[in-house]
Amino acid sequence: MEMVLEAELEKKKKLSQSRLADKHIGRRNKKNIFFKGLIVTATVISTLPLLFILFYIFKQGVGALNWHFLTHLPNPVGEPGGGVSNALVGSIMILLVSCVIAIPIGIVIGIYLSEEKRSRLGYYCRLAVDVLQGIPSIVIGIIIYEWVVRPMGGFSALSGSVALALMMLPSIIKSTEETLKLLPESLKEASLALGVPYYKTIMKVIVPTGLSGILTGVILSIARVIGETAPLLFTAFGNPFMSTNILKPMSSLPLIIFNYATSPYNDWHQLAWGASMVLILMILILNIISKIVQRKWKVQF
């Protein structure tokens, strides 16, 4: 061991005593409290917009919202009243078709990624999913216009569904992958050791065990695209009448909100507020359902 001179020790002791005798402790404590206050204030301010928006929409929308509103077509300009039945039916139909497209593909790809943790293809696929997720929705609109609308010769609900499916795909893939990756390896081994083939192990053991997570992801992805407007502008396009033909233009809630909100007519603004309220309620309900599924169906190990 190295020698430490007594004088050196004494010097260090004095120095640290003088510096560590914290004369500023009061100020430091005040700073600490002030900082927390700042953080809390900023956080509270950040949440105000949500409260304002929800409050405003409920205030404006609650008057419009009734059975008539949900079951009638919009009235022409100058006639108050009317409803958004075409948009409601349109939104639901467009979403159903996009679910049919996106859910199976998304889950299958999610399974692939959760199984192939290290493969090259898995790496590129994951990268592609990340990039896909970041593409601005308006660009998706252009793409589907070129891929579907132009070849089909016109706007259609189907093209809108394809656009929304493309937007749902990344989040379904990711939630499926994340869910299945967390399942213990022993589960798969238990099944394989019983002589269950790989594909049956995946479909009958792995997927059912992760079902609540997968389903939660699917519901959240629906909630995320249900209000998407930009990709529908050049695809589903909108339709002032009731239409259930997916090969023809179709209305949807976000489209009707956009068109009516930017119109100069008060009656139409009223319709748009009502439609906004319906949309927000649908999103809230989907979020609540996802929470319930997550909690109630959670598989215990």
């Binding site: 949440t47 928006i53 929409i57 209000g227 407007t229 976000p254 909100i257 949309l279 999103i283």
Partner: peptide
């Protein structure tokens, strides 16, 4: 929830 509100509603508001 803030993340869940559609863009078009932000615009409208």
């Amino acid at each position: 929830l803030l993340a869940g509100i559609p863009s078009v509603i932000y615009g409208f508001w």
